[in-house]
Nucleic acid binder design. Structure first.
Lengths: 233, 233
DNA sequence: CAGTGGTCTAGACCACAGG
DNA sequence: CTGTGGTCTAGACCACTGG
C-alpha cells in the first residue's frame, strides 16, 4: 500500500475521475475536502483545487463553499462545438474549397431580420447570397445580412474573392453572439442551387453576432442533404 | 496615469479582452510575456497565467512555449451546448412533460447500429421506441438501442414510467460518447406519430455513449418541425 | 460562527521549441 | 542554448454560506 505518487494535477484529476466512474464516490455524495485530498495524494492543496475545478467545469462535480464538493447527480452532457470556417471544414476533409458570390445588394430586410438585429425596419442592410462548394459540388448556401454602419468598409468590400465570413472575421471582431441549429426544407430556388429535391431536409445554422450593443451580421447557412455536425461528448 | 489595480485574475482577463477588442493588440500579434504583464499589472505571474490560460481555452489566444502568446487570428467560435434531459428542457419552458413508451423489444439491430456499437451483427439488443410530449403534444420521437449485457438491469427495467434516458443516467454512467446533429425527413409512420407531414424537415440528434470500450446505447431523437437548439456564442 | 472553496503570492523547477 | 509558458509548493487571506 504505497502512495502511487500523484505529482501533477492531471493525475489527481484522473484518479478522481476513476473513483467517480468506479462508483467509489457515488453520484450525489460528498467527497473529502481539498485539504484532506491534498494530504492523501501528497500534494499541495492548489494542485487538488486545479483538478477538482477542472472536473467541476466539465460538469462532473458540484462545488459550493462550505457545503463541499459533491459528485454531480446528472452529469450534464456538455458538447463543445467548434464552429470553424466552411473553408477549413471542407479542406480538413481533403476536399477542394471554392466559393461563389451569387448576389450582393443593399436592401431593406424582412422584419424578422431587422427585429433580430434590432435596427429600424426601414434601414437598408447589405444582403449577401453565396454558395460554398466542396470539390465543385454545392456544400452550403449562405444568406447573410450585414449592417454597413457597424462594419466600416463593408460597403466597399466586394466579397468576390473572400467569403463574407472570413472578411468579417478579420475586419469586424465580435464581442458575443448566438447560434441556433435547426432543420428546414429548401425553397424551389434553393433546391436548384443545392442540386437537391424540394422535399429534402436540410441542416441549418443561424448565427447572429454583436459588437457590444450593435448587431454586426445575421447569417443562415443551409447545408446540402446529409450534412452532419458531430463532436465528442 | 495610475495603475487601476488589477488585483484578481478576472480583472486581468477583462483588461486583456478589452485590449483585444479595442485592437490595441491586433490579431496575430505577439503580446508581452507573462512576467512583463505581471509587472505591468502589479500582480503575481500566476495570476496573469490564469487569466491568459482562460482566454486561450476560450480560443482568443494562441499560446506556445518559447514562441509566446499571440492574439488568435480566427477566434474559433466555440459553442458549448448543454444537452439536458428532454423532461428538463420541456419543463424549463413551463410546459407539462409526459412520456409514452411505444415499443420495447429484444431484437437484432440493423448493421448500421451493430456496426456503430461494435457488437456482433447477430447479437440481440434492447430496442426502445418512445414519444416525448410537451403539454400533451408530440415533441420528439426517441429510437434507442441498448446493449443489455453492458447495462445490468436493463432487461428488467420496463421504461414505462421513467424514460430510458433518465434510467440510464442513473444506472449506467458513461465515460465518453459522441453526438451528431443533422436533419431528416420522417418516415410515414414517424410523421403520423409526430403529427406532421412526410415532407417536413426534422431536427435530429444522434448520440452514442460508451463505458470504456463497450457501447452502452445508441439513440436517435427526431424533433417535431420547427425545433431549434440554441446557445450563446 | 466556522468550514469550505476561491484566490493571491513569491519563488522554484521543468518541458518544450524557436533561433 | 535560452526564453517562454506550465506547473508545483507552502502559506496566507478572503468570500461565501450552511448550520
Amino acid at each position: 500500500m504505497t502512495a502511487p505518487a500523484f505529482r501533477d494535477w492531471r493525475s489527481v484529476h484522473d484518479e478522481v475521475l476513476r473513483r467517480i466512474h468506479a462508483r467509489e464516490w457515488a453520484p450525489g455524495s460528498l467527497i473529502p475536502n481539498e485539504a484532506d485530498l491534498a494530504r492523501e495524494f501528497g500534494c499541495a492543496r492548489s494542485t487538488v483545487n486545479r483538478a477538482l475545478r477542472t472536473l467541476a467545469e466539465a460538469g462532473l462535480l458540484d462545488r459550493r463553499r462550505k457545503a463541499g464538493t459533491r459528485v454531480a447527480l446528472a452529469p450534464s452532457a456538455r458538447a463543445t462545438l467548434t464552429i470553424s470556417l466552411l473553408r477549413e471544414e471542407i479542406e480538413m476533409r481533403g476536399q477542394r474549397y471554392s466559393y461563389l458570390l451569387r448576389s450582393r445588394v443593399l436592401a431593406q430586410p424582412p422584419t424578422a431580420i431587422s427585429g433580430a438585429m434590432q435596427v429600424a425596419v426601414d434601414k437598408s442592410l447589405l444582403h449577401i447570397e453565396a454558395l460554398h462548394l466542396a470539390d465543385g459540388r454545392p456544400y452550403a448556401i449562405e444568406d447573410r445580412w450585414i449592417d454597413p454602419e457597424v462594419v466600416p468598409g463593408a460597403r466597399e468590400a466586394d466579397f468576390e474573392r473572400m467569403s463574407a465570413n472570413e472578411w468579417l472575421l478579420r475586419h469586424a471582431p465580435y464581442t458575443h453572439g448566438e447560434i441556433a441549429f435547426s432543420a428546414a426544407s429548401p425553397s424551389p430556388e434553393q433546391a436548384e442551387v443545392l442540386d437537391c429535391t424540394e422535399g429534402a431536409a436540410l441542416f441549418v445554422i443561424d448565427r447572429l453576432t454583436w459588437d457590444g450593443t450593435c448587431a454586426i451580421t445575421k447569417v443562415r447557412l443551409l447545408f446540402r442533404p446529409g450534412h452532419e455536425l458531430r463532436t465528442a461528448l
